[in-house]
Design a protein around this nucleic acid. Structure first.
Length: 471
DNA sequence: TTTTGAGTTGTTCGA
DNA sequence: GTCGAACAACTCAAA
């Protein structure tokens, strides 16, 4: 029975290179049946990530097909789908790459137990991270809670090499039937329209790898300073969406970064540190599974955040009257992404100036970001709000106006995204108005809104509330 | 066990 | 315009 197939359960690891599970599967010599399951956990994705997943799946399926393999699509609870598939194909077992958030871990544990109970093998593999979350520990053996020591620990560790993509995948004698991707309608919830958002995506492993090389050879050198300027095009790698869906592996990026550093690239270390921030987020998410739901620091659960409110609605719609904030919110709505610096600024504005619960912001990001990453967002929102690990002191409140002067001095970012600020707005600024739902009743010819709140007043209000409200 | 140095990304005010 | 101090106190990680 050595030719019984293995089912390869793909999730957020839609690539062929730097893929330990795939390498392990091929080492068995068995035929493989790649499958993606639209299970309830995946159904729960927000509009933009779900749409982006559809693009990723189409690209990955094409890649597999070019190698004589296939991506089988099935819908339903993972346990049932995998059991049925194993039965249909006579497979010996199932393999997957680990995920580390609470919901995925609970699901995967149940799947593993159920498969083993049926006499099937069930094997999970690393690949989503540089190091497994339990492989990095402080001297006392606990998880890290502060970034810099975590960075030092990871920097000194040997990260497994990135495995090359296989040349081919052995096919089973008979292919099981597959759903059609179109029938999943993963674009159903993206009301701004698939075409709007799709135009801004870089989809698939091939493009991700090419972008990494282009970045390493180009703007990485100036990354330390230029990454802070959202008006610059392509100053950052822009690989977050590819990392989020596993279209590129972190180990491959890690080793490419080290090579650049060895060659004297001045921006390489800063870039590697950003990659390790992603790693830190998953480290935290693994050790603190509540990270995306509950204030991480004790004493913050009682803070009287405002729940959803009209100010927050204006924030979502890019109509706060604060140009740097609105530019960023519109950028996210149209492109599915937002520059890192403006992510901090819009988050600070929502949680500090508008005193709104960070979970309100988190939920909107979860609906809008095509690079949606539960760990990075949970950590980031709590960091800005002040309740998170290694968080900013409460009095560190971003002023969107002075931030704009510092990081968008020529207004290129604000003008790019805010039609009301130009006599002849560019296509991007206009595309926002074309994309928003009618119910928002936005008009590019209307006057740009007055600020929701005076910045100094908002800051003072936040300082008073934060100094008093937490503990 | 105790001690010690340190901690992503800021703003404002007054000299 | 530039610069340093104040904004707080606490927790973390390692020695």
């Amino acid at each position: 029975m050595t030719d019984a197939a293995l089912i390869l359960w793909f999730r957020r690891d839609l690539r062929l290179s730097d893929h330990p599970m795939l390498a392990a599967a091929l080492a068995t010599g068995r035929p493989v049946v790649p499958v993606f399951i639209l299970d309830p956990e995946t159904e729960a994705l927000g509009a933009a990530p779900k749409f982006r997943l559809g693009l990723a799946l189409a690209s990955f399926a094409e890649r597999l097909a070019a190698m004589g393999s296939r991506l089988i699509l099935r819908r339903g609870p993972a346990v049932e789908v995998l059991a049925a598939l194993a039965h249909e194909t006579g497979a010996a077992g199932v393999m997957w790459s680990r995920m580390y958030d609470a919901a995925a871990r609970a699901r995967d544990q149940a799947v593993k137990a159920a498969l083993k109970a049926r006499g099937l093998t069930a094997q999970s593999h690393p690949g989503a991270l540089l190091l497994e979350p339990w492989e990095v520990a402080t001297g006392q053996g606990g998880p890290y809670r502060v970034y810099t020591p975590f960075w030092r620990a990871v920097r000194g560790r040997a990260v497994a090499p990135a495995l090359p993509a296989p040349a081919q995948l052995p096919a089973p004698a008979l292919w099981p039937v597959s759903d059609r991707l179109e029938d999943w309608h993963l674009d159903a919830a993206i009301h701004r329209g698939a075409a709007v958002v799709a135009a801004h995506q870089r989809v698939g492993e091939g493009k991700a790898l090419a972008r990494l090389e282009e970045f390493a050879a180009g703007s990485m050198a100036a990354y330390s300073a230029d990454r802070d300027l959202p008006g610059l095009e392509r100053a950052t790698s822009g690989l977050s969406e590819n990392l989020a869906w596993g279209e590129i592996g972190p180990r491959l990026i890690w080793h490419r970064g080290w090579r650049a550093m060895a060659e004297g690239n001045a921006g390489a270390e800063t870039f590697l540190k950003e990659l390790v921030w992603r790693e830190f987020a998953w480290h935290l998410m693994y050790h603190y599974p509540e990270l995306d739901r509950t204030s991480w620091k004790s004493g913050w659960e009682a803070f009287p955040w405002r729940s959803d409110n009209p100010d927050a609605e204006a924030w979502r719609r890019g109509m706060t009257g604060e140009p740097f904030v609105d530019a960023a919110m519109r950028e996210m709505y149209v492109t599915g992404r937002m520059h890192n610096r403006t992510r901090m600024i819009v988050a600070s504005y929502l949680t500090k100036h508008l005193l709104t619960d960070w979970r309100v912001g988190l939920a909107w990001f979860a609906d809008c970001l095509t690079d949606w990453d539960p760990a990075a967002n949970a950590m980031g929102w709590q960091w800005v709000a002040g309740s998170g690990p290694d968080a900013a002191p409460y009095f560190r409140i971003f002023n969107p106006a002075s931030q704009a002067e510092k990081f968008d001095p020529d207004q290129s970012y604000r003008r790019r995204w805010i039609a009301e600020l130009s006599r002849q707005p560019g296509t991007l600024a206009q595309s926002f108005f074309a994309a928003v739902p009618q119910s928002w009743q936005l008009d590019p010819a209307a006057r740009y809104p007055m600020p929701r709140i005076d910045l100094a007043e908002g800051r003072a209000r936040a300082l008073a509330a934060l100094a008093q409200g937490k503990t």
